[in-house]
Design a protein around this nucleic acid. Structure first.
Lengths: 348, 348
DNA sequence: CAGGTCATCCAAAACGTTTCGGATTTATGA
DNA sequence: TCATAAATCCGAAACGTTTTGGATGACCTG
């Protein structure tokens, strides 16, 4: 292990003080050209790299942003999260920031935030899955920690968010089904506290209202966002005397569960029962049949969230938050029917 | 922003010196029990967290492990990586370690390692996608950095690895196809330098040899691990005068591309052309038709890798590395034919 | 020649932590 | 009683950097 090259060793080698070496390298004007050249040469020759820690300790920055993932057990593999993280990571790397992942079950989540910030481990935070009354947002706002959330909230005035327009998204999907002639449309709504749940439900209702279709409360069921939850709920729906002709799931994972249930009842997805998802994960295109869903550009959202957070951290002029992104309806065979799937050409 | 709680502020509050506060919190024996209690209480009350930077600068551990992801652009969303990261994250969190993600294109990868370690950002590293001659492993071994790799290497003596038995996996899949009567089996092999490429190819060849089938070099084509690469390569294969009856892809993503190509040629996957993948990503089960693949327990591998790395970092008694995990063949409709898919019950 | 302006340099403090070596007090043993 | 050991505490240095507030001469101006 070679002795590290520090400002001190450079100072000793060149005969100048640590201060002068530091300022020469930083490009200050109170160093004579000849001195600067000498120091730069020496630094170059010995391969000097500033020690990040010294620099950070001095400036009280860690050059790191963190994402706390609310997860219990091996649950994170939701492709939705993965893409968001990827977007954030790429953007952060570009700015020379590192990305800290902190998987925490929700009970210890607040503790995780506190620890990250008081240990000055991260300069800012990214939040996902916001809630109407979100204790995390309240806490972070109170303590003045820089953060950006993917999702809105009601709990406090908070504008550093970026979100996808759930009302428009769900409305587009539901209208699509209504246009196809469906009247008994079931909606498996995501867990109550989550903010996007409310918007999507609103979109669902608005679409029905605009078509003059009465919303049947019995067709709106709350369930988790897992495949299993989708399957179980769909089973219950299909066992009814008057089963729905279309089932809209809370996300794509849930929709996969619904598709299983439909098939298990001996029905054909897309022909006998239409199924809709939400998120537009990559796999949705390759499902059997391809899933009609609402695409959210999560990777790009991750990038934008990271960029905005970095701007806030470095206290740059106000950025363009909040942002409401418009999602995109992807109509595929799970609602259009499998005849269209045979077209083949649609895949290219 | 409240004034940060530091050793100094705790010292002022309790009336002891910074040294004593530090040693009390660290559990040294030269602090009287009553003093320690007092200091601990005060630290607790004010929510003291040691500043990571100060501690690191001093030359201590960072309680962090890092994964450098070799990625160009928005490529990381490979579910395979995501699951690995999830496994690592969960295990690290349990030990009180944080996980640093550092996405880098391969050109700057070595630089990333150097930066992470000289700045002592991380106590250890996790490597993925090893190569036969892996400059990263050579560098890390030379500098004595604690690390564990997912995959073997030839470049240096290195035993801190965990890998999946690619020979056995590919052999099982190929034998499966041979048993179904296939003789013209194409193999889209992953990029050359990668270590697992060699093992899988060996498994492919061994299976053929054991069945007395001559390996046709024209049926072995090297391609990238993307969906597009799979599609392009399969197109070429299917255009030949004597097309293969089965195509084995380098991973599941590539297999999806192959399936597209097969369909684009007007052929039925599983009936006209058998398709095999590798990895066993969650989506593989829900493809159209479900994909025959070789399952690798990536999440668990991530956990084990993290556990082992933590053991190495804390210089605990030698752990049980290296480990060679046995993968599992998942035979599904993409090779068995779609008639079996109609069974329906198989889904439950 | 006195006063002022520049150009160039540097000592010291600061960030928060750990640790080395000693200092002070109290208890122990002969 | 005196020396010795043990218990408890702390000052100061160190890690590598940046920044503040001068200091030192050289040069100009009047």
């Amino acid at each position: 292990m070679p002795a590290p090259v520090t400002l001190k060793s450079l100072a000793a080698a060149t005969g100048f003080s640590v201060t002068t070496v530091s300022r020469a390298l930083a490009g200050y004007s109170d160093v004579s050209p000849s001195t600067r050249r000498l120091i730069l040469e020496e630094a170059e020759r010995r391969g000097y790299e500033p020690n990040l820690l010294g620099r950070l300790l001095q400036g009280q920055r860690s050059q790191t942003i963190a994402i706390v993932m609310p997860t219990s057990g091996p649950q994170f593999p939701d492709p939705f999260f993965a893409q968001f993280v990827a977007g954030v990571g790429v953007e952060a790397a570009q700015a020379g920031f590192d990305l800290l992942l902190s998987p925490q079950d929700s009970s210890s989540e607040l503790e995780a935030y506190r620890r990250l910030m008081t240990a000055r481990r991260a300069d800012g935070l990214l939040l996902i899955r916001t809630r109407a009354d979100d204790f995390r947002i309240r806490y972070l706002t109170e303590t003045g920690v820089p953060f950006v959330s993917f999702g809105r909230t009601d709990s406090v005035a908070h504008t550093a968010w970026i979100d996808v327009d759930g009302v428009a998204g769900q409305k587009a999907l539901t209208s699509h089904l209504l246009e196809l002639g469906h009247r008994r449309i079931a909606y498996i709504t995501p867990p109550g506290g989550l903010m996007f749940t409310r918007f999507r439900l609103q979109g669902f209702r608005e679409a029905l209202a605009e078509s003059g279709v009465a919303a049947d409360p019995a067709l709106i069921i709350e369930a988790g966002l897992s495949e299993q939850a989708g399957k179980d709920t769909a089973m219950l729906l299909l066992e009814r005397p008057e089963p729905p002709t279309a089932i809209v799931a809370g996300n794509d994972l849930t929709a996969i569960g619904v598709m299983h249930a439909v098939r298990a009842r001996g029905l054909r997805v897309g022909d006998d029962v239409a199924v809709g998802g939400y998120d537009g994960i990559p796999a949705s295109e390759h499902l059997n049949p391809p899933l009609t869903t609402v695409y959210q550009p999560v990777f790009e959202i991750g990038q934008l969230a990271a960029r905005s957070l970095l701007a806030i951290i470095t206290a740059q002029p106000a950025r363009d938050l909040p942002v409401l992104v418009r999602p995109q309806l992807l109509a595929r065979a799970s609602t259009l029917g499998t005849h269209s799937q045979r077209g083949g050409g649609a895949l290219d």
